[in-house]
Computed example of a mutant assay.
Amino acid sequence: MRISELARRAGVTTKAVRYYEALGLVTPRRLANGYRDYDEDDVRLAQEIRALRSLGIPAERTRPFLDCLEAGRRHADDCPASLAGYRDAIDELTERIEALTARRAALISHLQEAAHRNSTVAPVHANHPPDQAGRAGHPHPAHEAEGLSDALTEDPMNDYLSLPDDLPVPDDDGAAGHLPGMKAPSTAFAGTAGETIRIDALGAGRTVIYVYPLTGRPGTDLPEGWDSIPGARGCTPESCGFRDHYQDLLAAGAAGVFGLSSQDTGYQREVVERLDLPFQMLSDPASDLAETLRLPTFEISGMTLYRRLTLIIRDGVIEHVFYPVFPPNEHAEQVLAWLRDNPL
């Protein structure tokens, strides 16, 4: 057969076939006119080279496998030399993995240092998440090496500023339908600026309060299965959206903007500093607002967290509610559009 036919049947290019010939891996016979003539054995060899290259074994190191086939074995890895070829490839791959893992650990260390350089909150090690009070955990020394390996395996480099394309969209289950027209409760919450904020004493005009589950922190894993919960992922992009449109929101009639979650004030303060938020976060660790207003929540990893929604409070009354919120990274623009469409 001609070289084009061999290439088609083996699933490679004619250039690849010529390369295999240059290495002496495929040796077609020559016809009287000088043309190369390939047979079924050449097809089998070319297919084997392609399969081994897909495993990361370069063509020039496939000779032991091809010799095994040419010796009449049914499989290219039925010979001891082939097994040795596998081991050599595995050893080289292991060395590369170790080098990349060390480089990745160094990058994580630099990221954490940079992310907390201007923060008054101590950084949290990737494999020691904060406890209920927001403090960094301190493992037993015997678990240090194992913990570092676990942290690298569990991908502590979560990119909280971007959203996966396949996030599930939350449904409107009617859990916020009762809120418009309700009076704002007298519940008070600690703010990240050190003051106490009462929901019924926000003053005249409109106040935007976006309620969210929790914000992630660089180097700290999110709860297992987080991305599969409709409406859970995206608190950091949402907060950045309100930061970027903060002045626009004020110009459109908002007297103030707050974020609210069940995370403690220390954790929220780190977020405010790291993201350079121009507004305060409010801490509701006991989910008091959920109880007084019957706000929707969900359970995960032993925590009760708020479902994402936004309240527009005007003169002590809930004027409008955004629920469900999706996509969270565009929500600040949705609120801004509503304020502009509904001027005071």
Rank of each mutant, 00 (worst) to 15 (best):
R2A: 15
A7R: 02
R8E: 14
R8D: 12
R9W: 06
V12C: 02
T13M: 04
V17K: 07
R18Q: 07
A32K: 14
G34N: 12
D37N: 15
Y38T: 10
E40T: 10
D41Q: 14
D42P: 02
V43Y: 02
G56Y: 01
A59Q: 04
P64M: 02
G72L: 02
A76S: 14
D78E: 13
A81P: 02
G85Y: 08
A89R: 13
A89V: 06
A89Q: 10
T101M: 13
A102N: 11
A105Q: 11
L107F: 10
I108H: 14
L111P: 04
H116Q: 09
H128P: 03
H138Q: 14
H140W: 13
H143A: 15
E144N: 09
L148H: 12
L148W: 13
S149F: 15
E154M: 13
P156K: 08
N158I: 15
L161I: 06
L163E: 13
P168C: 11
V169A: 04
D172Y: 08
G177P: 00
P180A: 00
A193E: 15
T196N: 10
R198K: 10
D200I: 00
A201D: 08
L202D: 03
I209N: 00
Y212I: 00
P218Y: 06
G219E: 04
G219H: 06
L222D: 08
P230F: 05
G231F: 02
R233N: 04
C235L: 04
G241C: 01
G241M: 02
D248E: 13
L250D: 03
G253R: 09
G256H: 00
Y267T: 14
M281A: 05
D284C: 01
D284A: 00
A286C: 07
L293Q: 00
P296S: 02
L309N: 03
T310V: 01
R314H: 08
V317R: 12
V317W: 07
V317G: 13
Y323M: 07
V325T: 01
F326I: 05
P328C: 01
A332Q: 00
Q334F: 08
P343D: 06
